[in-house]
C-alpha cells in the first residue's frame, strides 16, 4: 500500500464503509507507518463526525404542519387528481388514417361517377362510326356470301337535329355498353347522308367496294346542293367517297369533326 492508494480509500475508511478485510488491514498498516496518511485519516474521521452531528441535528426537522393541510385542501378543492390515463395510444393516428382512407375512397367513387356521366357523349359519337362500319362491311362483302337480312328500318330519334342540311346522327342513350366500348376510340363527327354521284346500280355495290376519306374544297359542297358559307369557301372539308370494285366513285358524304 502506498499513499496514493491510501488516498483513494481514506474516505471509505473514515465513513466505515464495508470493504475487503485484507485491503482494510493494509490501509491501516500503512496509516500507522505514514504520518501524513495518519493525519489525513484523522481529518476524514473528524469530518465524518461533524457530518453525523449535523445529520442528528436535522433529524427532527420536518415540513411545517400547515403544509399538510394546504395539500389536503388542494387535493379536495382544486381537483388536481386526474384519473390514471393510459399512456398515449395510437388511436388518434388510426382515426386520422381511417379519415384519410375514407377521403380517398370518396374521391375515387366521385371520379368514377363523373367518368360514367361522360360516357353517353362518347356513345353519341360512336354511332355514326358504327353505321360507317356497317356500311363498310356491307360494301366489302363478297358475292358468294349470303346477303344479310335487311334490318328493320331504324327509327330516327326525336332528338335528331338538322343543322344547315347536316344530319347529326345521335344514338339513343340506351345504346349498349359494348358498342360504346368498341367505338370509344372513334373521333366525334357528324356526316351527311350519302349522295349518289351517278346512277347507282346496286349490283355494282354488291360486288364489293370501299370507302375512302378525302378532303375537298368546301365549294364542292355546293355541287351537291348543300349551302356554303362563302367566307370559308377556300377551306377544306372532309368527305367519304364510296368506291365500287371498278374504282368508280358511286356516292359521297360530307363529314364534319367536332
Amino acid at each position: 500500500m502506498n499513499c496514493q492508494r491510501f488516498e483513494e480509500l481514506v474516505s471509505e475508511l473514515a465513513r466505515g464503509q464495508i470493504m475487503d478485510a485484507d485491503l482494510q488491514r493494509d490501509a491501516l498498516d500503512h496509516e500507522r507507518e505514514c504520518r501524513e496518511c495518519m493525519l489525513r485519516l484523522n481529518a476524514e474521521e473528524h469530518l465524518t463526525r461533524g457530518l453525523h452531528a449535523l445529520k442528528l441535528e436535522m433529524e427532527s426537522v420536518s415540513a411545517p404542519m400547515a403544509l399538510e393541510s394546504h395539500l389536503v385542501e388542494a387535493f379536495r378543492t382544486r381537483n388536481v387528481v386526474h384519473p390514471i390515463v393510459p399512456r398515449r395510444t395510437m388511436a388518434r393516428y388510426w382515426l386520422t388514417a381511417v379519415a384519410a382512407l375514407l377521403l380517398i375512397v370518396f374521391g375515387v367513387v366521385a371520379a368514377r361517377w363523373r367518368h360514367e356521366q361522360k360516357q353517353p357523349r362518347q356513345v353519341e359519337a360512336a354511332v355514326p362510326s358504327k353505321q360507317y362500319e356497317k356500311q363498310a362491311v356491307a360494301y366489302n362483302r363478297t358475292p358468294d356470301q349470303p346477303k344479310p337480312e335487311r334490318p328493320a328500318p331504324e327509327r330516327r330519334p326525336k332528338r335528331e337535329r338538322r343543322l344547315n342540311g347536316l344530319v347529326a346522327k345521335t344514338p339513343s342513350r340506351n345504346a349498349n355498353r359494348d358498342e360504346s366500348q368498341i367505338s370509344n376510340h372513334v373521333v366525334k363527327e357528324i356526316a351527311t347522308d350519302f349522295v349518289a354521284l351517278s346512277y347507282l346500280n346496286p349490283e355494282n355495290i354488291q360486288e364489293g367496294g370501299q370507302i375512302v376519306r378525302v378532303e375537298l374544297p368546301r365549294s364542292a359542297m355546293a355541287s351537291f346542293g348543300f349551302p356554303v358559307n362563302m367566307d370559308r369557301y377556300n377551306e377544306k372539308v372532309k368527305a367519304d367517297v364510296l368506291l365500287g370494285v371498278d374504282g368508280v366513285a358511286h356516292a359521297i358524304r360530307f363529314v364534319k369533326e367536332y
Partner: peptide, 11 residues
C-alpha cells in the same frame, strides 16, 4: 491537491 489537515481540527 492533497488535503493535509492537523489533528483535532473539528474538536
Amino acid at each position: 491537491e492533497q488535503t493535509r489537515t492537523e489533528p483535532g481540527l473539528l474538536e
